[in-house]
Write a protein that binds this DNA or RNA. Structure first.
Lengths: 156, 156
DNA sequence: TATTGTTATACTCTATAACTATA
DNA sequence: TATAGTTATAGAGTATAACAATA
């Protein structure tokens, strides 16, 4: 404790948590959960993508992804299409209805969220992004020591 | 789309998501889920607090909280104590075992996370906090317009 | 052999609402 | 009447491992 960074992480958590709560309203209004919206938003304006790609972008593991996609498929918002290149995989893409939803919900969510940054100028965004980008870079860097005292690569 | 702030929010999400994944390792190693750790961390170094207080700090609703506390109680990490002032409520507090866990896990998690900010100087933290604080302030500000076009206070 | 996606399992979280006991 | 916490319900996400089809 007493570590300087904890304050920043707490702020970070409060901001994202607050933002997600703030944004959850229009999402839930359309009957979507957060992961479901994540999928819709990720598929929006694309020709579709494989489970693998979707999983990597949304950080949802494949076993879970099947369930989430199933529910979206039941709602008629996405569809699976055979991937000619690799018969093991599917392309998941928005249906016409899914695309309509995307075009309705996404701008609403964006507009809703935009208000929060009403008083941010270019400089403020730059400042924020700069600090965050460093952290993200650090997060992508392998070789950090785990609490056990060994590097992740050593582990089972 | 094309909104400037989306880039920042994406960064924000990636950072927190990445941080939580990074930190999840030591937490899970001790058999705790994220909400459970949240409770332990919140109760640490306190004489205990009520459900209401706990719920407000962790943003877990009371119905859910009962379940989370139940599981922690089954593990012998927290205990309920009658609140003399108000017989409707309990004080939830760490047991000796819970306190030991807190003292073991929390510093480990903190130390683990600290590495991410190894190259952040005072100025970097200030910059980050400054930008985040503005966003948080904005999130706490009522009266923002919802996608439906009316202010939240108008709703059911 | 490795990879893509599915299935099964078991648990946890979540929101919600009806309920109790106190206040 | 209002509040603190419980219980019941129903759904959704999660990790994990074993599995089929394909590469």
């Amino acid at each position: 404790m007493g570590e300087r960074y904890l304050k920043s992480v707490r702020l970070l958590a409060e901001c994202l948590q607050g933002f997600e709560r703030f944004v959850a309203e229009p999402v839930r209004r359309h009957g979507l959960t957060h992961p479901q919206f994540d999928i819709i938003a990720t598929l929006g304006n694309t020709p579709g993508m494989t489970y693998k790609e979707l999983g990597e972008r949304t950080l949802i593991t494949k076993g879970t992804l099947t369930g989430v996609i199933d529910r979206l498929e039941q709602k008629g918002l996405v569809e699976r299409a055979r991937n000619c290149d690799d018969k093991r995989s599917f392309l998941v893409r928005l249906t016409a209805e899914g695309d309509t939803l995307f075009r309705n919900v996404f701008p609403a969510v964006v507009a809703h969220g935009k208000q929060l940054f009403a008083d941010y100028g270019d400089g403020d965004f730059e400042q924020l992004d700069h600090a965050l980008r460093r952290l993200r870079t650090r997060l992508d860097t392998p070789g950090l020591v785990t609490p056990g005292g060994h590097v992740p690569a050593d582990e089972g």
